[in-house]
């Protein structure tokens, strides 16, 4: 599995919030076992999509110098399933700091219908220790449709 769970970044305000989408397709590897007769996107992977969107929010506000790593989930509530063919609308909002951790509120909806609400926090790290910042900046341009072939 290619562990990139945000397909597109649709809008953001530096340091404040970011919105994006994740498309669930029948070809996703994880659907084979989750579940064999009832394929739905695992809740942990929707959490990962929101964590990655927080990483992109940190990167967008720092010129690709920062990223975000999950350490704590206070509460995550699942209200319904995301099935193959669904487009999940993702939103994260920065919610301040506590005990040295950056806090976020995340939400996932499908067609405006609430599927997930989560409060989580973690560590903001130097992106260069984890990824090549230039490649990450290019990927961000792909996610925001700011690229051309030539």
């Amino acid at each position: 599995m290619r562990y990139l769970l945000v397909d597109r970044v649709t809008s953001w305000e530096s340091g404040v919030s970011m919105e994006g989408v994740k498309n669930v397709t029948m070809s996703e590897d994880f659907l084979e076992f989750h579940f064999p007769r009832f394929p739905v996107m695992p809740g942990s992977m929707i959490l990962e999509a929101l964590v990655q969107l927080s990483g992109w929010l940190e990167a967008a506000g720092s010129g690709c110098e920062c990223w975000f790593l999950l350490e704590r989930v206070e509460t995550i509530k699942y209200y319904g399933f995301a099935l193959p063919g669904d487009q999940i609308e993702l939103r994260v909002e920065a919610a301040g700091e506590e005990e040295g951790r950056s806090r976020y509120k995340g939400a996932a909806t499908v067609g405006g219908e609430r599927k997930v609400a989560v409060d989580f926090s973690g560590r903001v790290v130097d992106l260069k220790d984890y990824e090549d910042p230039e490649e990450q900046a290019h990927l961000f341009r792909v996610l925001t449709r700011d690229v051309k072939l030539s």
């Binding site: 562990y3 942990s44 992977m45 999950l70 260069k128 490649e135």
Partner: peptide, 24 residues
Amino acid sequence: EAYLKKHFSRAPLIPGSILVEAMS
């Protein structure tokens, strides 16, 4: 593990969400 290629290319770390899935 396939997910380690992008998590991360310079530091293969187990994503917290994978531990969430394992406990679940």
